[in-house]
Design a protein around this nucleic acid. Structure first.
Lengths: 111, 111
DNA sequence: GTTCATACCTCGTTATGCGATGTATAAGGT
DNA sequence: ACCTTATACATCGCATAACGAGGTATGAAC
């Protein structure tokens, strides 16, 4: 991943919820899309992604549906439920306030 | 803590290193100081703090020293080693680039 | 016809936050 | 004198989670 792996924790769900709030996506697409947007700095591992998706599903935040892609391959598309959309907004808010607090502590440590 | 606990992971070491780069502090002081700076939004738990400090010590990033405070109580002061100062700069850099990437993914998800 | 990209998944290891719990001292109230 | 509270250190065990490794299946390309 490039980053200290520990930094990632907690932001996984946030990223998934926000990505899916844009449009329905299938697993492999999520991996590629997040790499593309981060210029390969960020790479979802499959061992991370699928369990995370399933967990969000279990929590009722996402729904899943098999569709056949243009290439004839079966793809499992994931999308947000109503609760998921709420959770997306909530977790994004939490992310902003969290980074704000960390940055506050950091900046005061510089003086 | 208020936040999704998972968000914290990985930023703990960062915060400790940056706080100690400012001045030597003892454990209890770190807890109070981080609460003060975040307006009580951020509270280090003792079960989190001390193991984290010991781990940083084991990695050679911090040194510790018992001193007697003005109130007559024994306090264990922690400070950064040379390696710790380097690690502080490194982890701060990593934090900034990490938040940049996450924000990049988030912002594109809004369009 | 074999290799590669696509596409899904699970399991076990490892790491870690932190609640619970324990110890000890000093201060302050009653 | 006694109790509570704040200070100050620490450990242990539970639960959670990232992810490397491994597994299966399909279509395309060479």
């Amino acid at each position: 991943m490039g980053f200290d792996r520990e930094l990632l924790k907690g932001s996984i769900a946030l990223l998934l919820l926000r990505l899916l709030s844009e449009r329905d996506m299938y697993g492999y697409e999520i991996i590629q899309e997040s790499m593309r947007r981060s210029q390969d700095a960020f790479e979802f591992k499959e061992g991370t992604l699928y369990p995370a998706l399933h967990q969000l599903h279990k929590r009722g935040y996402i729904r899943s549906e098999w569709r056949t892609g243009e290439n004839g391959k079966q793809r499992k598309y994931y999308g947000l439920t109503a609760a998921g959309k709420k959770a997306a907004r909530r977790s994004e808010q939490e992310w902003f306030s969290f980074t704000k607090v960390v940055n506050a502590i950091l900046s005061k440590a510089n003086t």
